[in-house]
Amino acid sequence: MEMKLEDLGYSDALERFRIEHHLRDFEIGRVIAEHKERYTVKTAQGEYDAEITGNMRFAARGREDYPAVGDWVAVATYDPDLAIIHAILPRFSVLKRQAVGQFGEVQLIATNIDYALIVQALDRDFNINRLERYLTICHASKVEPIIILTKADLLDEKQIKEIVESIKARVKDVPVIAISNETRRGYEELTRLIRKGKTYCLLGSSGVGKSSLLNALSGDTVMKTGAISQSTHKGRHVTSHRELIVLENGGIVIDNPGMREVGIADAAGGLQTTFDKIVSLAKGCKFKDCTHTSEAGCRVLEAVGRGEIDKAAYENYLKMEREKAHFTSTVAERRKKEKGFGKMMKDYKKTIRKNNL
């Protein structure tokens, strides 16, 4: 069956941009996979291995200026297998985290995402603090989260209910669905949430069942699945790159490598949404620069003391707030250095020209 761009989520707004920015001579496609700055782009004509132009590489100021899975791109095709990416069309959302081991740098998870399926395994991976990290990333990107708890067949109903209630006590207005690949529990409910033309991104650690979930949704073994190591309880490395897949019902799903670290990057709006109750109370603190750690007249500390705010949620908020502040200051410091270096090079070139006159 021939696939149209609309099946991949292409919109009238993107088509208007293509026309207004004189990109009529290029094919439009969506990046469906990424392998270390090599990309797979799907167009109405087929799939191509793709690279960016030298100009795009030279003009890039950071990782966000490179294509990512989910991007719509303008390409020129030169043979049946190779395409060159000339432009990235506007993104309506960008899921990103702090790059592992590179503080102040971001890593793009995926772009143009409508919903994030945050996947945790009920038997070993379940961690509300980590859930709040994923939620913060989603809220910062204006992506709607859905929490998926896998391996429900390994627990009894009472245990599942207790876990779901513990999540809902700290996380408001986010769907929580417990599923099982063995019994098919929860799949009917989840399938109802997946809509044609909308893009869903799977987020979670290795071994929580993301690839098994994707296989079950698609009705096909589209991603390899790996066993859990009994000694380490960590999933074997089975998904080494991001990949976009269109489901039979028209939903579009992006799978991701498992994330061991979920660093917060520029998530001011994300933290405010995830911890809206804490942020709202903070407005009533006696001091405007209250750190909510020891100050008199701190509404947040008073609420924690009364049990109105979960202590673990409060501590997680403080940890991520410190992380966000450190990230922001690191980015500002790096930009200051880059600006100084740019001025130095400009002055140097001016001196060289002057001496050559």
Rank of each mutant, 00 (worst) to 15 (best):
F26T: 05
A87N: 14
Y115D: 09
L89W: 08
L108T: 15
L122Y: 02
L82G: 05
E37H: 12
I84V: 15
F126Q: 11
T111L: 02
E64P: 00
F58Y: 15
Q45P: 00
N112R: 05
A87C: 10
Q98T: 09
A110M: 05
A99I: 03
V106T: 13
H22K: 13
E105L: 11
H86L: 05
V41T: 07
L14R: 09
V119Y: 03
L108R: 10
F92P: 00
T111Q: 05
A44W: 02
V94G: 04
A68V: 01
L108C: 11
D65E: 13
L23Q: 10
L82E: 14
I84R: 14
Y66N: 04
A13P: 00
I128S: 12
F26K: 12
P80V: 06
T43C: 06
I128R: 13
A33D: 04
L23P: 02
T53P: 02
V41E: 04
H86T: 05
G62I: 06
F26Y: 15
A99W: 01
G62T: 06
A83V: 07
A121L: 02
D81Y: 13
E6M: 07
F58A: 12
F103T: 13
W72R: 01
G54R: 11
T77N: 09
R97D: 10
A59F: 13
L108I: 15
N55P: 00
Y66A: 01
A83P: 05
S93D: 06
A50Y: 09
E27V: 00
H86S: 09
V31Y: 02
H86E: 09
K36R: 15
R124I: 00
V69F: 08
D114G: 01
R97K: 14
R38L: 12
R63Y: 08
Y78E: 13
L89I: 11
E15V: 00
V41I: 12
A44G: 14
Q102Y: 15
A83C: 10
R91H: 08
D81A: 12
D123F: 02
E51F: 12
F92K: 15
R24F: 06
I19G: 00
I84L: 15
A13W: 03
V94P: 00
F26Q: 07
G104V: 07
D125M: 02
H22D: 13
D49T: 14
P90H: 11
N112T: 06
R91V: 07
F92W: 13
R63N: 15
G101I: 07
V119H: 05
Q107W: 03
I19M: 11
K36F: 10
H86Q: 04
N127V: 03
I52V: 15
H86G: 06
D79C: 08
Q120K: 01
W72N: 06
L89H: 11
L122T: 11
A74D: 07
G62R: 09
I52D: 08
L117A: 03
V106W: 00
A87T: 14
W72I: 01
A50F: 07
R30T: 04
L14V: 03
R91A: 09
S11R: 14
P90E: 12
A68D: 01
N112A: 05
K36H: 13
L8K: 02
L14E: 04
A44H: 08
P67N: 04
